[in-house]
Design a protein around this nucleic acid. Structure first.
Lengths: 160, 160
DNA sequence: CGGCCTCCCTTGCGATTTGCAACTGACTCG
DNA sequence: CGAGTCAGTTGCAAATCGCAAGGGAGGCCG
């Protein structure tokens, strides 16, 4: 299998979100990564846990391995995160925290993240790397970066 | 259209990531949200920008509106984020930052987030809400939360 | 007021992907 | 050796996606 996403790829948009989704945005892919993040290593274990069809799982593991997000150890096959894969942790964290807030029942979240450093519940927050203040959902604006094309520059200048 | 995702839903997993992806994990959905976050409001504008088919865009806007992530103002139709939608911003940010790091060309990222509060590039980081320290990709572990079922409790206790 | 245009979708139709079931090898355990 | 598990592959039915076309509502122009 060659194509990273069904039909038309997102890669033509000069957008980091689109390029990331072209790799991890397919159905099941982020849930496979959740399973690996939970410590599961084996094909059959992940398949049973997710209830995904084995051909689909085989495809997703192959794609993730091709992109260097997972590595496969043979005999018997085991899958592990690479550093590149571990760097997707903020994506899983962000999805989980939104789900905790808006989709969890009244019992509360099923899983809680703990900060190994201090041993307490982490409840990860975003802060500004420059001033250290907490970043809320309305606290960011956008500017053109060095990789922007002319059209993006104009649109972001006109207002982002 | 009733079903939120093709074929089998993810909702049976008691997992906040799965439940979130059941809502925003379909093809195009997060890119539609990126467009709205960029300030675009009109159907035709978003359709042109993404190159998505109009029936697909109509479906995604409807689903997001049904879930209270967007609101639709009529005559003429305009789409805006709700607070619930704005709370998805960390998801878009996390996807963008991974893409900036691993998929941007040597020119660098096309778009940079700026912290309105201090006016500098934000480069959002995760910190522990308890101790305030920066959270790296290996600094989190997991424990069962109040909404965990018996099976999840056992598995998380046996290891995280 | 009639014709033309744009915008916001809806419909129809292949092309592609997903999901299920069955099957193949390799390995393990008794 | 026989049974069972693991890690996929293959074949086919069903659902979804993408494109092209169309339709209705509103605006503009003469």
């Amino acid at each position: 299998m060659i194509s990273a996403m069904p039909y038309r790829s997102f890669d033509d948009q000069n957008c980091s979100i689109a390029r990331t989704l072209a790799i991890v945005g397919e159905r099941w892919t982020l849930l496979v990564l959740r399973e690996i993040a939970l410590g599961r290593r084996r094909f059959e274990e992940i398949r049973r846990e997710l209830g995904v069809a084995s051909n689909i799982l085989a495809d997703r593991l192959q794609t993730l391995t091709d992109h260097g997000i997972l590595e496969r150890l043979d005999d018997p096959p085991r899958y592990r995160m690479t550093d590149k894969g571990r760097d997707l942790q903020p994506v899983l964290t962000a999805l989980m925290r939104w789900g905790d807030r808006y989709t969890a029942g009244e019992d509360g979240p099923p899983v809680v993240q703990v900060h190994k450093g201090c041993g307490h519940d982490a409840h990860p927050q975003q802060v500004c790397a420059h001033c250290g203040e907490t970043i809320g959902p309305r606290d960011l604006t956008l500017r053109a970066g060095p990789g922007a094309n002319e059209r993006q520059r104009e649109q972001l200048a006109a207002r982002g």
